[in-house]
């Protein structure tokens, strides 16, 4: 039961966080210079139009009433209407979201595939050459600013060596029918392997921009917690059983280090949603980030605030999932509910 209680605690925390975020967004709307109705009606609207928009948005009501209406709209999933396209912000976001998710998933996979083996080997051979080199590489990787890393990757891989495309999502003419909104998955669904490889080639550079700092941080935490577990009292009996170093690391240190590492990965993946603004813009990719950047450039206030709200929700959900995974990994919390046979 402790398990369910902890999960519901996390859920309550998520709801409270989102409420706080919504309140913040509402305050931002009110703090924006100029008349809100004028902003909503768009530049060049005449006074009658502005007045009708003010009436439609309920701007003549008391602020508290407006705030409650705003929260109710959020609950219904109404993030407002874009002034530029006059489509609901949610619809526009839903169209670009899969592309961002594709990028984040791919980046997390690459980052994990780099960080885990590196940390496992480094911890197994602590203080040896590999450990030293890996730590230097991790510090370097973590210290590189994303915009610079993006430009360097484009320059070397796309321009000097011409291994990968520089920007975009797929080459002209080989886009597969849009089913999921993720170019790689769409190509696979269409059974079109060349298109899949093409989309993958476009995906790889932006994914590495996320994956390198991600891997650097995950590596450092995982290595440190592996070493922590290896130095704990728990490992002496395992050693006394005759276990090899690799067994101690893989069977005991790794499971015990996963708890903090998964939590960190949740936070980092959440952070990627924010980082998408830069990466998607630099690589000219469709996505929540480039939508947000475009909306800012077009002064589309409701689209920007809607996207901010949306990014906040995404970050909260990713963290919630990471929290739940962490809870499920620990039998002390999981209790007897999923444990086989006990009692």
């Amino acid at each position: 039961m402790a398990y369910l209680r902890l999960i519901s605690q996390r859920l309550v925390m998520t709801v409270l966080t989102l409420w706080g975020l919504a309140t913040l967004v509402f305050i931002m709307i009110k703090l924006i210079p100029g008349d809100e109705a004028q902003v909503a009606a768009g530049p060049g609207a005449n006074p009658e139009q502005v007045a009708s928009v003010a009436k439609r948005l309920g701007l003549d009501l008391p602020v508290l009433q407006q705030y409650l209406n705003f929260l109710l709209r959020m609950l219904r999933g109404d993030l407002g209407t874009s002034v530029v396209s006059s489509k609901p912000v949610l619809t526009e976001l839903a169209a670009v979201l899969p592309s961002t998710i594709e990028l984040m998933i791919f980046a997390s996979i690459i980052g994990t595939l780099i960080a885990f083996p590196m940390a496992l080997v480094a911890a197994s051979y602590r203080g040896k050459a590999f450990d030293g080199i890996a730590r230097i590489v991790a510090v370097t990787g973590g210290a590189m600013p994303a915009f610079w890393l993006a430009l360097m990757l484009q320059f070397f891989f796309g321009n000097v060596w011409r291994i990968t495309p520089i920007s975009g999502q797929h080459s002209f003419g080989i886009a597969s029918p849009n089913v999921t909104g993720m170019p790689t998955l769409d190509a696979l669904l269409a059974g079109d392997i060349p298109a899949f490889l093409d989309a993958l080639a476009y995906l790889i550079l932006p994914a590495f921009v996320f994956a390198i700092p991600f891997a650097a941080q995950v590596f450092r935490l995982l290595r440190a917690s592996l070493l922590g577990v290896l130095a704990s009292d728990m490992m002496l009996p395992v050693r006394a059983k005759g276990a090899s170093t690799s067994r101690m690391v893989l069977r005991h240190a790794l499971p015990n280090s996963l708890l903090p590492t998964v939590s960190l990965m949740g936070v980092l993946v959440g952070g990627m949603v924010g980082g998408a603004i830069l990466v998607e813009t630099v690589f000219a990719r469709r996505g929540v980030g480039s939508f947000l950047a475009n909306s800012v450039a077009l002064k589309d206030t409701y689209a920007v605030l809607g996207a901010v709200m949306f990014v906040g929700i995404a970050v909260c959900l990713v963290n919630l999932v990471a929290d739940i995974i962490t809870l499920m990994l620990d039998p002390r919390i999981r209790g007897t509910q999923f444990g086989a046979g006990a009692k």
């Binding site: 704990s232 009292d233 728990m234 002496l236 009996p237 395992v238 006394a240 059983k241 005759g242 005991h252 499971p255 015990n256 990994l329 620990d330 039998p331 002390r332």
Partner: peptide, 18 residues
Amino acid sequence: GQRMGMVFQDPMSSLDPL
């Protein structure tokens, strides 16, 4: 483990919790 075994002081921290 095969020819010589060892038991340690604190059973609370001698076992892998997972």
